[in-house]
Amino acid sequence: MDNLFSSGFIFGHMNYWLFVVLMMTGLYIVVSRGNLLKKVVGLNLFQAAVFMLYISMGKVAGGTAPILTGNPDEVYSNPLPHVLILTAIVVGIATTSLGLALIVRINESYGTIEEDEVLALDQQQERDELAALEEEVLKSK
């Protein structure tokens, strides 16, 4: 247990600690905020944290950018996780833009982007439908 609190464990893994903090902050915002826009911001933060995880993973101590220089002893970072995360960044952008587009449409149809108000309007519509249904049944009798 002693190495758990050593400075190496804390500072040596700084990237990963930040990843965890950022990821949990993002996830917390998604869960706790009622504003649909803020949820998307939280989701973005959550995804950005994962980008950090992948980028840290590819880092080789003392390594440079992975470009062929002709020097066989050149130490360079692992480019693969970086390439992988480029894909994930594109996916993140697509998700964000789609989420924002949906929010615009929700605002147009519901007139609000607060989750509880949207939910209340949904439930209201459901109640209205059922009331109309009952009326119809009564009328036919």
Partner: peptide, 10 residues
């Protein structure tokens, strides 16, 4: 459908 799609997205 919009709020359903949004929930699904998140």
């Amino acid at each position: 459908a919009l709020s359903a799609a949004y929930d699904y997205l998140i």
